[in-house]
Structures are given as C-alpha cells and as structure tokens.
Amino acid sequence: MSANEYVVRTKDVAKEFIMGDQVLRALDGVQLDIRRGEYISIMGPSGSGKSTLFNMVGGLDKPTEGSVFINDVDMAQLDAHELAYLRCRTIGYIFQTFNLIPVMTALENCTLPMIFAGTPTEEANEKGIALLKMVGLGERLFHKPTELSGGQQQRVAIARSFANDPAIILADEPTGNLDLKTGKEIITLLKRLNKERGVTIISATHDLKMVDVSDRVVWIRDGKIERIEERADLDLKVGQMEGEE
C-alpha cells in the first residue's frame, strides 16, 4: 500500500497565536511527509516554529489551518476519546524536561501508559521491567525520579514512550537538559531503538549531534520549511562541523 509509506503527513499546516491584539503566525503552510521507520530531525533556531510544528505532529495542539494526518487519519476529525487513544498507543513522547510523574517510581512511570491502555497490572509490570532493562535501568526499577540523574530520568522517559509499542516517537529537545556525554548516549540509544524496532523517530532539536544519526533533517525558519536535507548531503556537513569543534 503506497499510502502507508508515510506515517505522518502535514498539509498546508498553519498556526496562529493571538498575543494581545497581535496575531503571530508561528507556522505558515508547512508541508511535510514523514516515512515509516525514518529518523527525522526538525532543526531551527528558537522561535522558528519548530516546537509548534512538533506539537501539531504529535496531536498536542490543533492547527489553525490545514491538516495533519497520522497513518492517513486526519487528526482534526478525532474526538477526545480517539485522540487520547492515539496519544496512548500510536505516539510515544519524550520531553526536554523528562516529565516523569514525580510521585511514581521508574517502573510505575513506565507502566502508566499501559495502565491507560487497559493492560492488566501484572502484564504491564513485566513489560515495564523489560523496557527499563532495554534502556539499561534494570537496577533502578523502584527509584523515584528525584533519585535518578538527568540521563537516567531521560532513559526512563524513553522506556515509557515505548510502553504501548507506538509507531512514532516524538522527542522534543531530548538532549536539551543533558550534558554533552549523556546527550550522546541518549542519541545513540534512540538511534539503536529506531533501527532495532523500526519505529519512526521525530525529534525537534538544535543539538547538532542529532544530525549525525538522522536520515533527514528539516530546517525551519520563520514558520516555513527552509530546506530538507537527505542523509547523503548530511555526511559531508557533519564532517565539517566536527572539524570546527
């Protein structure tokens, strides 16, 4: 099925924010097709509309104009129950600030999406343990987020995002709050999971280390797609950037 080649498609997406009596057009006619199993980075300076686009793609916010399709389903047509279902099972979210629930242990955080999906507790726990082992936190199951380092918290968040075997992982600046080394580890982990599990990873970032592992990089400026670079063009650039460091 050719329609199924793309897991996310946006059609003329525009988003306006009203700031007092001014209208701010954060996105302006964005057209983006994301292939299944792709590792794609959305890059751009802050205020470029990068996060806004990211929120549209993830069903976290509604576009003012245009439509977003996930697996050929128009997000605007979904009611609250269907939207929650989609967020729960089709999309996994990773945030810059980790966003673990502070009152829950690593394992409980990890099983929460499964509980929302109606998975029996025992089955959810088993899978949660497996996922935490997958990200290298098999020894930290019962630690609270405050007892974990930033990198470890992000690993829990990654494990959590895989809870319901989503088709898409959305990562919003996943390395933004981490030091260089830990950031690299997180990127390597994401790439590994992308390859092993064939999950589509969409990440909004301005971390150039991300470019390294991306299949495509989308550059956003002033609410529009400036250019899209394929893997082949990227290899050359990364070489140059590492030279600068």
Binding site: A80, F95, I101, L112
Partner: peptide
C-alpha cells in the same frame, strides 16, 4: 499543570 499535560500525552482522558 505539567503533570496533567504529561498524563494527557500518555493517553489520559480529560475525565480521568
């Protein structure tokens, strides 16, 4: 608020 937003991302319904 952030916790609420996170829960909604993970699939919690408004009513929950």
């Amino acid at each position: 608020y952030k916790e609420i937003g996170t829960m909604k991302c993970l699939g919690a319904l408004d009513s929950f």
